[in-house]
Structure formats: C-alpha cells, structure tokens
Design a protein around this nucleic acid. Sequence first.
DNA 1: CATTAAATGTAAAAAATGTTACATTTGAAC
DNA 2: GTTCAAATGTAACATTTTTTACATTTAATG
Lengths: 236, 236
Amino acid sequence: MLNFPTLHTSPFLSVLPETLANKVKEIAVVVKYNDGEFIHDRGDMKRGLSIVKTGAVNVGVYGEDGAFILTSTLGEGQCFGEFTLFTKLPRTHHAAARGVTEIYQIPGKKFMGLTEKEPQILNALLTVTLMRTHYLIEMLDAFRRLPLRERTAKTLVTMMGPRGATGTKGGEYKISCRQSELASMLGVTRVSLNRVLQQLADLTLIKIGYGYIEILDTNCMISWVGRHCGLTALEG
Amino acid sequence: MLNFPTLHTSPFLSVLPETLANKVKEIAVVVKYNDGEFIHDRGDMKRGLSIVKTGAVNVGVYGEDGAFILTSTLGEGQCFGEFTLFTKLPRTHHAAARGVTEIYQIPGKKFMGLTEKEPQILNALLTVTLMRTHYLIEMLDAFRRLPLRERTAKTLVTMMGPRGATGTKGGEYKISCRQSELASMLGVTRVSLNRVLQQLADLTLIKIGYGYIEILDTNCMISWVGRHCGLTALEG
DNA sequence: CATTAAATGTAAAAAATGTTACATTTGAAC
DNA sequence: GTTCAAATGTAACATTTTTTACATTTAATG
C-alpha cells in the first residue's frame, strides 16, 4: 500500500528506546485525518511535534502554478515539525495525509518539558535528524553531479526503504507512485522522466506499470546504482 | 577574507551558552592545518567532533574526473563530523583547510561523555543540525523548481551570511569566490554560470569581479530573490 | 462490457545547458 | 613594468530538457 520515499531514514519511534517511546506517546493526542486532509500549512506558527501513528504523510509546497510539489513522504513512526521546536520560524511546508492517517500530536512546551527529564530523547531526535541531513546531502549531490537517468535510478533505490523489508530478498520490489509524482521529486517534467524510465526498462532494471514501478532485481539495481552513481555509501 | 556559504546557519559555538562552549573547548585539542591540508578523508572511520577555531574548512567530495566538488564551506565556530557520533557509518566527505586553519578536535567518546552531564549541548547541536536541514531542503527545492538564473541569485544571497554582518546595511556586499567554485556548487559548468552571472549583472543586481562577486545592493538583491524564487522565508 | 477519468506514451519544435577550444583580462611575483 | 599563471569572456556546435499537443492504455464504475 505504501512504500514511498521515507527520507530513507529510520523512524523516530524506532530509534527511541521503547520505554521512552511510550512516554512520548503518553503526552500525545492522537488525531485522525482523511486522505488529502491538511495536517499543517506553510506559514503556521503553532509549535509542536507530530509523529505518524498509522498511514503516511505527504510533505511539500505549492508552486506558483498551484501544483503541489512533493518533498517527501513520511511513514509510520516518523516525525515532523521538530523544526518548530528549536527555532522561531513559521512552518515552511504543507503536510497532508496520504490515505486515512493517525497522527500523534505533541504541543511544543509539553515535548520540551519531557526532554528535560529524559534527555535521551534528544539523542534519538538528533540521530534521526542527522540521518535526514545525510540523505539530503546525497540528494543534493545527485542533482549536482548525476545525469537524469542515474539520478532517477538512485532515487528509486532510496524509495525501496530498508533492504529486504518488503520485497523478496534480491527479488522484485514494487514502488507505488505515479510518474508525475516522481518527476516532481526529481525536478523534471513527466515527459523527460518517462524517457529515462524507458531507458532503465531497456536495461532490464525496472518494469514500468500503471501507477507503479517495479524493480526487477533489487540486488542488480543497487549494484547498478553503486557502479554508475559513485560515492554513495547507500548502507553501512 | 572569508565569506563563503557557511550553510547559512549559526555556528555551533554561538548557539551554545558561553559556559558550555568553554566546557567543550576544554576537552578539545587544537590542531593547526595549512591551506589545502586534509582534516578528514572520505571513508575515515574515526569518530569525533570538529569545530573551526580560526580559518575555514572546505567540505566536498572528489568526482570521477578527479575534480573536487565543493559541498559547503564552514566558518569559525561551525562544527562538522557530528554525523560520526550518532551513526556507525564512515565519513562521506573530505574536509580540507581553506587557508591556515585551527580546529578544535574532540574524540567521540569524550564528547558523548560531556553531553551526558550537560544535555543542553544536545539542544544546541540539534538546533544547528535542524537549521542545516532547513537550508538543505531549500537548496533541493531550488534545484527542483528554479531556473539557473534564479538558483544562482538565491545561492548568492545565502552566501551573504547573517544580514548586515559584514556588508554595509542595504549597501554592497563582496563575496570572494571563483566562478568555477560557484558553478560546482550549483551543479553547472563555468560557461553556463558565467552566462547567468552576466544576466544578473545586466539587471544591476551584481558586479562581476576577478575572484569575487559584488552584490550591489543587498536589499535589492534579497527583494529580487524573494519575488523570483518564491516560498523562501529567508530569515525570520 | 461500455464508459470514463486518470495515467502513460509519443512526436516535433524551442529553449537551456554542455562541450570544446581559444581569446582576453587580472593580479601577483619578480 | 614584464612575465606568468589563474581567472574570466566568448563562440560554435552537440546534447539534453522543456513545451505543447495529442494518442494510447489502464483500472475502476456502473
């Protein structure tokens, strides 16, 4: 149902030791959103941490032409809004539910109070944030250095999530996303994206479907990306 | 002497309360590097936090053609290597001194020990890291959405550092960097960059020099970027 | 199974960027 | 001030990407 780029990082709730995760959940209010419903808007000043309980969240902005530009999608256990806790800036992105979604909402002051008693929470939040920074630096690098075909392949790999989690080990892996969404993430038009997807299909790395892309052999794909995109330590 | 993209974020040592900054300095060893000398190499496993005492540090990677691709430059008070403290991954970037540079080097275990006694340090590190994440997301957005001319102008603005710190208020501001460096950061060739710089010069936003670029009126420049690049809350 | 909206596929001209090669300018060192 | 290496400016052509417009395929619905 959902395998979208989860920023290629571990969820906050998984990094947190279980006892602490429970304490965080205790001070949270669970709010339910329907598909497409907005959780936060760009410009909002209200401070607080949000964590995905079930479902998923699209994060992005509206371009000048009114089209929603997807920055990333967050899966279960992942947090967002932490930026509002440590700065005084308004939110820079919209967050919208992807399917029926439940969110743990934690007011800023409540959360900061808990971190004073349990500084270990900061450790986990820092770990998650640094992993995101790492991912973002890699993506920036891809934009700078890689041709579209390679950049696309690399992005597809990051969209696979933790190795072997869903797909058969070394086997195929299905990514549900429209070409227009992927194009928006990669900063190109759907026409250009379609062209390079077909090139990757010709290389028998992927198979193009209606609303999804299938990676035919995850090991082959990862190895191809390693050879053609260089630099990347895609996993430790 | 040095005004390069400092990731457009506050230095770690400035965010940290002074007493804590001193405690961090106390457990550090100061190491001196000459211009161009490597501080860390990609692939290094040794864990530790580094902070720029004086001078500056170029962070980047070597491309397949052997050319150094600049990711960012860090100024005084800024930290790097924090990624090695919270994950077990090797370093992903090279770090080289830009001019004669002194670095506070703090071994991983020592630093983590201090944070247990003074969790406030994690707070500061988190703040800095989140600001970097914010900057990186903005840059990624620029790559996705903006034409080269706009992306260049926006990058120049972020290279100005804290508003009015060095340049005359609302007046001119001189950025020392070669066109080839800027081109590498923007992921284009020097030829293309030169073309758009001249366009910005024709708009009387900048003046192109030998080894530097002068922003003629910082207020005009910021306003132009605001109008043409959209979205960005460049400052709170 | 016919209909329909959404998604994908394709084609051609225009625009942007890269490649290559060379000319010119600048600033520092002597 | 001459010399020289480094940096910037420029031009022609190749390649990639966008733009625009339309055709085709798919999956869901009645």
